[in-house]
């Protein structure tokens, strides 16, 4: 049955303003959505990754995000849309490294999507292929060599002592190195170079 046989107003909406008129198309050639949705499925399988499903693209995260306030191209909602559509180019986007993991977005998200977590997962995907800023790599290397992202100096330890904070102890550097080696990450870290170069991140 076709509606042409029915002369009804619901089906004849000349008065409807096309909402698409507001959307300025960025790319001329359309981008394909991969048929296996591999990137999306991988994220969904990771811890907290399945919270992605809940996102209904309300944009509250973007209006809550302090980075988005400064940098208008930083848009966590849009990042999630890309993940939803399995668009792995996101993992190669340096912008996601700007996230502070401040969780402003997450606490405001009406559907409890773990946005920073998902962005971390996207970063992890990028990490392996070198889509990582040099400073981040430096930090990773520092973990490998010292078990910490920052150097702990003598004065620091003294201050902690004065403040009555517990001792930091010695990080299990050896076990860490072993574990990372087994994963093949230690070697990768040594050889990898950031495609973004050493500065201009964060």
């Amino acid at each position: 049955m076709n509606i042409d046989s029915l002369n009804t107003s619901r089906f004849l909406r000349n008065d409807f303003k096309p909402r698409l008129a507001r959307c300025e198309l960025i790319a001329v050639t359309p981008t394909s959505i991969s048929s296996d949705l591999e990137f999306r499925n991988w994220i969904l399988k990771q811890p907290e990754g399945e919270t992605l499903l809940r996102c209904y693209q309300c944009g509250r995260c973007t209006s809550a995000c302090p980075i988005a306030e400064i940098d208008h191209s930083f848009n966590p909602r849009l990042f999630l849309e890309k993940v939803i559509l399995a668009d792995e180019s996101l993992a190669e986007n340096q912008l996601i490294w700007t996230c502070l993991t401040c969780e402003q977005c997450e606490v405001r998200c009406p559907e409890h999507v773990k946005i920073p977590q998902i962005l971390i997962l996207a970063k992890v995907r990028g990490l392996v292929s070198g889509n990582t800023p040099e400073t981040a790599l430096d930090r990773a290397r520092s973990i490998l060599s010292q078990g910490r992202t920052i150097q702990v100096s003598e004065p620091m330890l003294k201050t902690r002592d004065k403040m009555g904070l517990p001792s930091l102890g010695n990080p299990p550097v050896k076990q860490l190195a072993k574990a990372l080696k087994e994963l093949g990450l230690a070697e990768k870290l040594e050889n990898i170079k950031s495609i973004y170069g050493g500065d201009g991140d964060e």
Binding site: L20, P30, T31, S32, E81
Partner: peptide, 24 residues
Amino acid sequence: IENTLESMEREVIADLVAIPQMVG
């Protein structure tokens, strides 16, 4: 597909296209 929330066009290869009918 014109995706309004990305302001870009997407292409997808579907095995089937399903059309929800309207109730009259």
